[in-house]
Amino acid sequence: MTASPDLRELYQEVIIDHTKRPRNFRRLDNADRKAHGVNPLCGDKVEVFVKMNGDVIDEVTFHGAGCSISTASASLMTQVLKGKTLAEAREIFEKFHDLVTGKAKDPDFQKKLGKLLVFSGVCEYPVRVKCATLPWHTLKAALEGEAEKTVSTE
């Protein structure tokens, strides 16, 4: 039984690294926005905390229990979004969404995604798309609204 090459496209080194050592993995006591996300399909739970400075995301952290894809996605999301404006964050999410749903095959487009490109393998695994987008949907809920909101990817 040889290791399947496809698997490495999904579980890239960076993803495994962020699974084992998630960055910004903590609750943020002074968060001014937060939201709670669940994937009822697999029971993954994630909480996202945001501290704003005017229009800019000053700090973003997460907490919760999930699979490798959702944990790494949350971890990389927090890294990528720190210091971004709300409009920029929204744009990145849209691009990320296109990437994991297989709508962004164009390499020029993909370049703009920077390190989020490690999730390009996800689109080959339709049932795992929700794992990758759960933290982002949760962040969106936090940014868009109520201080506390439960989102479900269903």
Partner: peptide, 22 residues
């Protein structure tokens, strides 16, 4: 240390169908 969801996805690559979740 490995989430069942990831176990299921990888097993599927080897033709093994199991259920993962609650």
């Amino acid at each position: 240390g490995i989430h069942p969801h990831d176990v299921g996805t990888i097993l599927d690559q080897y033709g093994v169908a199991v259920r993962t979740g609650h």
